[in-house]
Amino acid sequence: MTKNKAALLCGILFGLGLAISQMNNPDKVLAFLDVTGNWDASLAFVMGGALITLATLQHFILKRHQPICDTEFHLPKTNNPIDKRLILGAILFGIGWGLVGFCPGAVLAAFGDGKIEPFLFTLALGAGMMLFNKFHETK
């Protein structure tokens, strides 16, 4: 298994997971966020399934000295400080997510709908990331 083949396999599983759970349907995501309306709790079960599976498996995986295709695990420290950047970033993401119901993974998994909206959103998402790079390069 090479890094690229492993990533392809993982991407396929991730995309299937998003499609099966319908998280690539923004109506479904907005219905989860609409707690005072006709609430649909499905997204919480997606997170639950993902967290239980990942937490269990990584317990064994991280006992290894290194991953199969690399010399080290690239993991962010879990005790990094909470700063303004993290909070502001989460707020901006939250507003954008609540307006349309797309997050970065879900929108890519919606390409199969054959509609223009996921592509438009992805272009804007890329523009937002480039804007960030521009703004933070000059600092």
């Binding site: 707020i91 901006l92 993401f93 797309f102 992805t122 804007a124 998402l125 523009a127 937002g128």
Partner: peptide, 14 residues
Amino acid sequence: ISGVLVGYGTRLGN
């Protein structure tokens, strides 16, 4: 608007 917010926000918030 939403796409730009999500793109910028997720980079800022890592």
